[in-house]
Simulated assay, not measured.
Amino acid sequence: MNATERQQQILETLDLRGRLAIAELSARFEVSDMTIRRDLAQLEAEGLLRRTHGGAVRSQSGNFEPPYALRTRLNAESKRAIAVSVVAQLADGETVVLDGGSTGVAIAEELVGRKLTVCALNLRVADVLMASPATRVMVPGGEVRHGEQSFVGPAAERTLADYRFDSYVMTVSAVDMTAGLTEWNEADAAIKRAALVSSTRCIVACDSTKFGQTAFARVAAVDAADQIHTDTHLPTDVRQSLTAAGIAPYIS
């Protein structure tokens, strides 16, 4: 296992548990304590965790939005599989609203070359799609959130209200059968609500770690989604709850 693969596993385990010890990591990966210390130092320099005496903890509390740089390193293979599944549901000629975040960027990368009109709610997504001459790219305007690079605010919401889209591909921070689809940032949640109102169909794309979680700002009830695309690690009880609610999940 090389350093990149080891660091990826460190981040994914830390995301699940919140705290890790150097001795435990050294034994798990069969490398020296010094090697683990170098890994943790590099990840801390990227803002992906915080070192402690003898180990590391998450860079932020679980009650706050994780930084984009961390999210793009977590569950990358699952997000790519989800992206392939979502894109298969979009027909050439459709008008589509596409969210941002690490999953949104993965979906944009799979859309390159498709004959679609895509309203990108994020600068990173728009940049990816601009590489595709076949794709008509729109952006809603308004304010751009620092770090996330997502469009937010009343101007962006008004732009969305002026159009009617075939599909909205929504990414979310958390999914809970009672709390619904939720986001860490209330301005992002408001844009998602506006996109939902302006779209005929809602396709939710999120990896299995988001289920059973609740973030700060509510977007909509779970049944606002016409489709939910996730990965093979979705717990059986969650799959059964979604199916009972009439939303059999697409598993990739």
Rank of each mutant, 00 (worst) to 15 (best):
V128N: 01
V139R: 01
A108W: 02
A81C: 10
V97N: 02
R145I: 09
S85G: 15
R58A: 10
S102D: 00
H146D: 15
Y68W: 13
V125P: 02
R71G: 03
A88R: 14
S61E: 12
V96K: 02
A88V: 06
M170Y: 04
H146L: 15
M130A: 14
V57F: 09
G54H: 11
E44K: 03
D166T: 10
T35E: 08
E65K: 15
Q89N: 10
H53R: 15
V152H: 04
S132N: 10
V152G: 05
S150I: 02
A126M: 10
V87P: 01
G100E: 01
R38I: 07
F29C: 06
V84D: 07
Q89T: 13
G62L: 15
T117D: 03
F29H: 12
V125L: 09
A108E: 00
E157P: 00
H146P: 11
R164D: 08
H53K: 14
G93C: 05
V152P: 03
A41F: 10
F64D: 11
L111V: 02
D92G: 11
L98K: 01
Y168K: 05
P67I: 10
G54N: 11
T72G: 01
E77F: 10
Q60Y: 11
V57Q: 13
T52D: 08
L98D: 01
V125H: 00
R58E: 05
T159W: 12
V112C: 07
G141K: 08
Q60S: 13
A120H: 05
R124M: 08
V118F: 05
E143G: 08
V31H: 03
R114K: 15
G54L: 12
L123N: 02
P66C: 08
A156Y: 09
V139K: 03
Y163A: 13
A131S: 14
L116A: 06
G54P: 07
N63Y: 12
F165Q: 00
V97Y: 00
G141H: 08
I36R: 00
L40S: 02
H53Y: 15
A91E: 13
R136G: 07
N122P: 08
D92V: 06
L116Y: 01
T117I: 05
R73L: 05
L48K: 10
G147N: 13
C119W: 01
R58M: 13
A45K: 14
S150E: 11
V144L: 12
A69C: 07
E143W: 08
A88P: 03
S59H: 03
E44S: 07
H53F: 14
D99A: 04
G104W: 03
M34W: 08
D39F: 05
E143F: 09
L43T: 05
T52A: 07
C119I: 05
A56C: 14
V112A: 05
L90R: 00
I36L: 09
V97R: 02
D39W: 03
